[in-house]
Design a protein around this nucleic acid. Sequence first.
DNA 1: CAGCATCCGTTGGGATACTG
DNA 2: CAGTATCCCAACGGATGCTG
Lengths: 119, 119
Amino acid sequence: MKIKQIKAIKATLDIVCGKWKAAILLVLVDKTLRFSEIKARLPKVNHQTLIKQLKDLERDGLITRTKYDDIPPRVEYTLTEYGKELEQLLKDMMDWGEKHLDLKNKKYIDDDILVKEES
Amino acid sequence: MKIKQIKAIKATLDIVCGKWKAAILLVLVDKTLRFSEIKARLPKVNHQTLIKQLKDLERDGLITRTKYDDIPPRVEYTLTEYGKELEQLLKDMMDWGEKHLDLKNKKYIDDDILVKEES
DNA sequence: CAGCATCCGTTGGGATACTG
DNA sequence: CAGTATCCCAACGGATGCTG
C-alpha cells in the first residue's frame, strides 16, 4: 500500500510546508495568541502573508480562529487537538535537523526565520 | 532557544518538501535502485524533474549516487544513514496524515503522486 | 541509459493601499 | 486591530531537445 502511504505523507507535508507554518505552530504551542501577538513574535513575516498562512492552517484544521466583537477588534488563534498532536512531529524534525544539518553554514538555512525570544 | 528550534525544523522541511522528495525516499527505503528503476516506480514524475530532485537529495546528504562506467551507463542511488534515519519521521507523518486527514476528498491531495505497487 | 541546457507557466510569498 | 483586494516577482516543477 505504498500509494496510500505516500499520499498521507505528502498531505501532511503540504500542510506544514508553508514558509511560516512551522514557526506559527511553534509559537502557538505555548499558548493562545492574538494576531498582533503572533506578529510580534515573528517580526519578519509580512502582514498579508501571515493572514494567508493562518487561514491555511485554519482551513486544514490545525488552529481555530476566535473573533471577539470588541472595539478595537480582537482575534485569537489556538491550536486544535490535531495541531497539538503535530508538536511531537515538529520536535522530531528538530532533532533530526540538529543532528544532521550544519545549521550555521549551509545555504538551506533561511535567515528570514526569526522568532522573538520570550521577554 | 526558539530560534534555533525553528531553524532546525525549517531546514528539515526544506529538504523534504520537494514535490517528489518524500516519494523518492520511500522507494529507496526498500533497496538501492537505478535511475530507471526509480522512474519506473514513479511513472508520473518528469525525467528532468526527477534528476533535479535526486541532485537536491544528494547535495543534502540523504542519498548517495554511484556511477558505474558501463555501457550503457548505470547509476545507482542509495539512502545514506541520514536518509535512513528519516524513515521513522516519514512514518510518523504518515500516521498523523492518516489519522487526521480525509485523504479521499480533500483538495490538498495531489493526485500526481503515484507509485507503482511492487509487482 | 542517464544527464545537461534552456525555456516556460504556475504558484506562493511579499508589497501596497484601503476598510470596519 | 485585523482583514480584504490587487499586483508583482522569484522560484520551482515541468516540457523539449541534445549529448556521451
